[in-house]
Every structure is written in structure tokens, then in C-alpha cells.
């Protein structure tokens, strides 16, 4: 009796596998058929621009400090109107672990992680992305945000008190006298 049970248990397994021949296919034909990646996917890092087309990054170094592996290098400089921007911005993707801390630390939504993982290279050096490789032309996940439009800092084209939700500057001496 035992042997019949044993043969049945094997036939049952084979039968189950056979029935799966009529199920929906689970296979994704990957290079031809791209998988869906969630918008929160932590993939290739980009530097975004604000809606006016200017660089969002103000070179505060917070991303470089937050990075657990130290793969971000940048140097800040200022243009003649007082607007800060990175002179160079370099991410070594052979070190990056895609933890998302840089995106979280960024106060101006400049650095963002995108749903893209296809960035293999034959040479390690090619994984070092410079600023021109990282900068994209759009605003990324936050289409309407413009840091300088809400910040009180005076830069070219925007004086003191001209930002959103900001009142005109007050002359404290005028109040005293």
C-alpha cells in the first residue's frame, strides 16, 4: 500500500506542474519587455533643474555628508548675482549603494533618485558621473518647486522681499526714528 501512496505523491507533483502549463506565463521577456518600476524606485541619481530651467543645486554639501559610502564629491561656487551652484558635481556610481539619503538630505529637491537601473559599464571609470552626465533638463518629481522663488536670498532677477509669501523688507532705522 505504501508504494502506491508513494507513486501517487510523485504523480501528484507531476500533475501540478503539468496543470501550470495552462496558467498565465510569469516570465517577462526582459530586454524587449521592460518591467514596471515604482516611482519611488531608488535607482540612477540625477540632478534636476527648477521650472525656469536653472540648476536647483545650491551646493550645500548635505548630500555628501549624508552619504554612507562617500561617493558624492562637489565644489561650490557663486555666480556674479550671488546664486550658488556646484562648480563640479561628481558621483561615483561604482561606490553608490542607492540608499536614498542624498535625496532625503537635499533641501532644494535637486538630487533625485530615478526608476532606472540599467547603467552597467565595462570600465569602472565610466561609472564616475560628472555634472553634465547627472543634470537632466526637467524638474523631476517636484515639477513646481523653485527654491529661489521661496527663499529670502536676493539673487539676480529677484531682490529682497520679492519671494513668495515674503513681505517687503522693513527699514529698522526708519522705525526707530
Amino acid at each position: 500500500m505504501q508504494i502506491i501512496e508513494n507513486i501517487y505523491s510523485i504523480l501528484r507533483s507531476i500533475g501540478l506542474v503539468f496543470m501550470h502549463a495552462f496558467h498565465k506565463r510569469e516570465t517577462v521577456q526582459y530586454p524587449d519587455e521592460k518591467p514596471y518600476l515604482a516611482p519611488r524606485w531608488r535607482g540612477r541619481i540625477v540632478l534636476t533643474r527648477d521650472p525656469d530651467g536653472a540648476e536647483r543645486c545650491v551646493g550645500c554639501y548635505l548630500c555628501a555628508v549624508a552619504c554612507p559610502v562617500g561617493c558624492i564629491a562637489l565644489q561650490t561656487t557663486e555666480d556674479e548675482t550671488g546664486r550658488r551652484y556646484p562648480e563640479f558635481f561628481r558621483i561615483n556610481f561604482s561606490r553608490c549603494i542607492f540608499c536614498g539619503y542624498c535625496e532625503e538630505a537635499c533641501p532644494t529637491y535637486a538630487i533625485q533618485l530615478t526608476p532606472d537601473f540599467e547603467m552597467c559599464e565595462y570600465k569602472r571609470q565610466n561609472l564616475v558621473y560628472e555634472k553634465e552626465d547627472l543634470l537632466i533638463s526637467g524638474p523631476g518629481k517636484y515639477p513646481d518647486y523653485n527654491f529661489y522663488r521661496v527663499a529670502g536670498l536676493a539673487i539676480g532677477g529677484k531682490g529682497k522681499g520679492e519671494a513668495e509669501n515674503e513681505s517687503a523688507p522693513v527699514d529698522p532705522r526708519g522705525l526707530l526714528l
Binding site: L37, A38, R40, I97, F98, G100
Partner: peptide
Amino acid sequence: EVISEIFEETVGARLTMNYIQPGGVMYDIH
């Protein structure tokens, strides 16, 4: 794969989650 897709939507990763942080969790649930 089915459960990975849930994680992917909320966490943004499938294997190296980096989700539970001191003081809370990294993102709110989707």
C-alpha cells in the same frame, strides 16, 4: 516576486531596503 513588488512600491528597493530607521521609517506606506 509578488511580495517584492509591494516592497518596491513603498520602499523603492527590492533587496537592500534601508527602510526602518532610528526614529521611524524612511517613507510612509504607499
